[in-house]
Amino acid sequence: MKKVFERPKSLTKDPFTYCPGCHHGIAHRLVAEALDDFGVREKTIGVCPVGCSVFAYVFFDCDMICAAHGRAPAVATGIKKSKPDSIVFTYQGDGDLASIGTAEIVHAANRGENITVIFINNAIYGMTGGQMAPTTLVGQVTQTSPYGRDPKTMGYPIKVAEMLSTLKGVAYISRVALSKPAYILKAKKAIKKAFQTQVEGKGFSLVEVLSTCPTNWGLSPIEANKWLEENMIPYFPLGEFKTPEEVS
């Protein structure tokens, strides 16, 4: 019988422990498939963040390290510099990457570090229980914006993909979503392209993945997907912002 679906080699057999409807599982799988596609699992070193995906080290079947909150791009820099032949990726949430780790991501991108960053943007802090993230939408209610995010005092949500694509050292940036199969197929392509960028030594690559957090959004998984499409995508448009072809 022909096998049509199997677990990627780059994932362990441990079942995901993420909440129902959370997109981490899909994102993990897409990363693992890309590692499998390039046959690089055995030379990959992944860096997990502080946040729900701190447990990514359990699920990826490759060498893994956990960084301090926001510091994954600096840790990845140290790894890549000392093991230039390895494939290095960070997996970071929005609080990690776009708040406490802003300096690290901007400068790793600006140095053109030949690493791949998977940036999970779900517009909220998950692990700490639903506080405002730098990507929380205007008006969105969280524990620390209980009356809705007010841009007058809390600023506007940061568009990471757009911001980083202004940097000359960056080779590949795209924004994808995981709320429906068509998007997931596109996301798979984008993540593969990001790793390809690294495999070919072309420089810094980042995929911003719009994701749900049903638990902290207070929605069912299906409602969460709908909310993402109706509220996040209009503000965080999908697509490629920079490709290696544009890099001279």
């Binding site: 000392s82 300096a103 400068h107």
Partner: peptide, 26 residues
């Protein structure tokens, strides 16, 4: 070999953390 002028002291020590994790002297 590698030398990086890090963006901050915080980044520098975390680069050390990453490099040390691969087993090199840093």
């Amino acid at each position: 070999a590698a030398f990086v002028q890090a963006e901050s002291e915080i980044a520098a020590i975390n680069m050390v953390y990453g490099a040390a994790a691969t087993g090199v002297r840093t």
